[in-house]
């Protein structure tokens, strides 16, 4: 991490600026991203309505496709790479994922246990 500060200012680039390729290469990157994103979206819609696959696998397939979609966006549009001056972005992404995991996972867990000290409704009825 500390290497970054010793680089000349010209090398400390904002996300998206790091590829000094020609315009054509960059446009190609966006086109590939767009095609992949469209493909994943179309597949999701197709899977959701189809009866060609085993039905219980559909939710799992949709989750996998959604995660793949996020990956495509991160790589092709937000330019997250494993390059040396991307440390901050990767760390920020990791922190973001951790927080989302904690908040969403924690919420699901808490909300599923909210009635732990309450007898089910029919038991209350039966006692009366």
């Amino acid at each position: 991490m500390s290497d970054q500060t010793h680089m000349p200012a010209g090398h400390d680039l904002a996300p998206g600026d790091e590829e000094q390729h020609s315009v054509g290469t960059r446009i190609l990157g966006y086109v590939v991203g767009l095609v992949l994103a469209l493909l994943l979206t179309a597949t999701s819609f197709f899977i959701a309505g189809t009866d060609l696959v085993w039905q219980p696998s559909i939710p799992v397939a949709l989750i996998v496709l959604a995660i793949a979609q996020m990956g495509v966006h991160l790589v092709f549009f937000l330019h997250i790479t494993t390059g040396p001056d991307n440390t901050n972005n990767v760390l920020a992404l990791a922190f973001g994922l951790l927080v989302v995991f904690l908040v969403v996972g924690g919420t699901v867990w808490i909300m599923a246990h909210l009635n732990a000290n309450m007898p089910p409704m029919d038991q209350i009825m039966m006692r009366q």
């Binding site: 951790l98 908040v103 246990h113 909210l114 000290n117």
Partner: peptide, 17 residues
């Protein structure tokens, strides 16, 4: 980010939570 439930311990969550 891992402690927020302690603001509502009394609101019904079970002993494990």
């Amino acid at each position: 980010f891992m402690v927020w439930l302690h603001h509502f311990f009394t609101m019904g969550a079970g002993p494990d939570v």
